[in-house]
């Protein structure tokens, strides 16, 4: 049983790694952009949701995505990298991996706090404020200008 579980885990990780590896750099970027847009949509919906269950459903999806953020930035998918035509990812992401990881962890933590606050309007609003801060906390140092 143990071996079977370990094997399955290895297979899942290998599969995840393979999908990232197999995509071209621009495809990785495009997936990332789509994921971020989805995250924004979920957060907007969570902020407008009325019942705690709705809030938690949207935040649950947001957390699941947020936890994958560090894996969405493999080396070679930033501004100026070969095969990348459209991205705002600054090279600082790979120059300061610890800071980048901390910034993305901050988002996950803020989202979990918001999830726990569902049902308490005042607490939830404050928690959403922290979520917003964490978005800016990564975009300001690690995202470059929008260019055409």
């Amino acid at each position: 049983m143990k071996y079977w579980l370990a094997g399955a885990a290895v297979a899942v990780f290998a599969g995840a790694a393979w999908t990232v590896m197999a995509a071209t750099p621009q495809e990785t970027v495009d997936q990332r952009i789509a994921g971020m847009k989805g995250l924004g949509g979920n957060l907007q919906a969570a902020a407008k949701a009325v019942t705690p269950a709705e809030v938690q459903a949207k935040l649950g999806a947001a957390i699941a995505f947020a936890e994958t953020i560090p894996t969405l930035f493999p080396k070679g998918t930033g501004i100026g990298d070969k095969g990348v035509t459209k991205t705002r990812a600054l090279q600082e992401i790979w120059a300061k991996p610890a800071e980048f990881k901390a910034a993305s962890d901050a988002l996950v933590n803020a989202l979990k706090a918001a999830n726990a606050a569902a049902g308490d309007k005042a607490k939830l609003d404050a928690a959403f404020g922290e979520v917003r801060k964490s978005c800016g906390g990564c975009h300001t140092p690690f995202r470059g200008p929008e260019i055409e």
Binding site: G40, L43, R132, C135, G136, H139, T140, R143, P145, E146
Partner: peptide, 16 residues
């Protein structure tokens, strides 16, 4: 007032 967008993104660059 704060640079917060409806989709939780925030203003950056010149608009910030």
């Amino acid at each position: 007032n704060s640079g917060a967008k409806p989709d939780f993104d925030s203003a950056q660059g010149p608009m910030a």
